[in-house]
C-alpha cells in the first residue's frame, strides 16, 4: 500500500472521466443535495416540535432510530424498490441527515431561555417576529452543531453511492478493492477524510459569521 495513486498527476486531471476532482465534485453534489432535502424536511418539523412541545417523543426517538438504521441496507432496499439511479441514493442519505438536524432544531428551541421569549412577547412582538428575531437566532448555535454533525456523517457515508453504480469518492474505494489496488483505496480514504475536515471548517466559518457574538 502506498500513496502513488494519490500523487499521480494523471488522476488529478479536471477533464478525464473518473479523475479525483470529478469524483470530489459528484461526491459533494450528493452531500449537498442530501443536506438540502434533509434540512427542508427536518428543520420545520424540529422547530415546530421544539416551539410547541408537541410530539417531543418523535424528536427524541428519531435521533436514536436514525443512528441505528444501516444506510447501506436502506440503500439496497431502495434500489430493489425503485431501481438504480440517484433517487435511491438520495433517499438513503437524506434519512441519515434528518435525525441530527431534527433533534438539534428541537433541542435548540427547547433550551431557549423562556424569560427572553416572554420579554419578546411582552414588548409586543408578533409570534412570527418572536420566532425569527428571537428564537431562531438564539437556537442557532445548537442547530448549527447538529447540521455540522449531519454534514460529517453524510460526507463519509456518501461513498455508498458507488456501490450502486454512481460516482463519488466511493468509486476509488470500491473499484480499488475490486482490483486489489490498495493505493487507490488509500487515496479514496484520504480524500474523503480531507473533504470532511474542509467541509467542517467551512461550516465552522459560516457559523462564526451567522451566529451573534453575544452567544459565543
Amino acid at each position: 500500500m502506498n500513496l502513488s495513486y494519490l500523487f499521480d498527476a494523471a488522476h488529478w486531471s479536471l477533464t478525464a472521466d473518473g479523475s479525483i476532482p470529478q469524483l470530489i465534485l459528484s461526491h459533494v453534489w450528493y452531500v449537498v443535495l442530501a443536506l438540502i432535502i434533509g434540512t427542508i424536511i427536518a428543520l420545520p418539523v424540529g422547530l415546530y416540535i421544539g416551539h410547541t412541545g408537541r410530539g417531543s417523543f418523535l424528536a427524541i426517538n428519531a435521533g436514536n432510530a436514525g443512528r441505528s438504521l444501516p444506510t447501506l441496507g436502506l440503500l439496497m432496499l431502495m434500489v430493489t424498490l425503485l431501481g438504480l439511479g440517484l433517487t435511491p441514493v438520495l433517499i438513503a442519505l437524506t434519512v441519515l441527515v434528518i435525525p441530527p438536524i431534527l433533534t438539534s432544531a428541537y433541542a435548540g428551541m427547547r433550551t431557549l431561555d423562556h424569560r427572553v421569549v416572554d420579554a419578546a412577547r411582552g414588548m409586543g412582538m408578533r409570534p412570527w417576529q418572536v420566532l425569527f428575531k428571537v428564537e431562531l437566532p438564539m437556537a442557532l448555535p445548537v442547530m448549527m452543531s447538529g447540521f455540522r454533525s449531519a454534514a460529517l456523517q453524510v460526507v463519509a457515508t456518501a461513498t455508498v453511492a458507488a456501490a450502486v453504480g454512481l460516482n463519488g469518492l466511493g468509486r476509488l474505494l470500491i473499484d480499488g478493492l475490486a482490483v486489489n489496488d490498495y493505493s487507490r483505496v488509500l487515496a479514496g480514504a484520504i480524500v474523503v477524510a480531507v473533504l470532511a475536515v474542509v467541509l467542517d471548517l467551512i461550516l465552522a466559518l459560516a457559523q462564526r459569521w451567522i451566529v451573534s457574538p453575544g452567544l459565543r
Binding site: 431561555d113 424569560r115 427572553v116 411582552g122 409586543g124 428571537v134 451573534s212 453575544g214 452567544l215
Partner: peptide, 23 residues
Amino acid sequence: DDALLRRKIGYVIQHAGLFPHRT
C-alpha cells in the same frame, strides 16, 4: 390587538430578559 397594546406598555421582568444575540 395584543401586539399593538403591548408596544404602548413598557415591560420589565426579573433577570431583565435581554436578547443575548443583540447588542
